[in-house]
Design a binder for these strands. Structure first.
Lengths: 100, 100
DNA sequence: AGGTTAGTTAGGATCATGGCTAACCATTCA
DNA sequence: TGAATGGTTAGCCATGATCCTAACTAACCT
């Protein structure tokens, strides 16, 4: 649940590796190894991205045997959509005030 | 217009100072000085944030006399909304596939 | 002209990010 | 039991982000 900041969320999405992970997990859970496969990168480096996203509340992970399974935290991105929508509304309101 | 990357856009919004600038500009244009006022920060530091956002296509600026006026680039954030929406849809589609 | 205002340029300090290798642990399988 | 697999920890390094001060330029005001 945790109150994850927009800072953390936006920063997490600023990295293409991490967005790719989200794009993959949106289609269902996967183990670290599988997630890492397309990402020409050493496992420890990759794991850091996983940790960033877990810390940011974007994904959740748990150990199953020797694998670590990862899944989306589906509500995590809502604050971002909210903020963007808020800006859009403010902008449009401001447009409509521009009379004569 | 430019094809600004999600990388750049998300990264730009990862900083609270820059989000505050956007929040302010959503209500109408402003000069650098005015934007900087609430941000206990030296002007050169602040200017860098302005440059980051201009480079990212989020705002546009032009000199007017000795001031530099800044305004929103209203379509800049659309790719972000698009990406977020895309993820949401992928997630929901995946949910519905979970039968029996 | 001289001073004030707004911005700009240059250069430096500090810290976080994102990558690596090497070595280790825990689980599974033959 | 021993080897392979999947992950983890530790430590290193290069780069870039974010802040600063000092000094300069360009407009505007009296």
């Amino acid at each position: 649940m945790a109150n994850h900041s927009l800072d953390t969320l936006f920063a997490a999405l600023g990295d293409p590796t991490r967005r790719a992970i989200i794009e993959r997990l949106a289609h269902g859970p996967a183990a670290v190894k599988e997630l890492a496969a397309p990402h020409d990168m050493a496992l420890p480096s990759f794991l850091q991205h996983i940790k960033v996203m877990e810390a940011g509340g974007i994904i959740a992970t748990r150990k199953e045997g020797r694998q670590r399974m990862c899944r989306m935290e589906p509500n995590a991105l809502i604050p971002l959509q909210g903020w963007l929508e808020w800006q859009r509304l403010a902008w449009e309101a401001q447009i409509h005030q521009q009379k004569d």
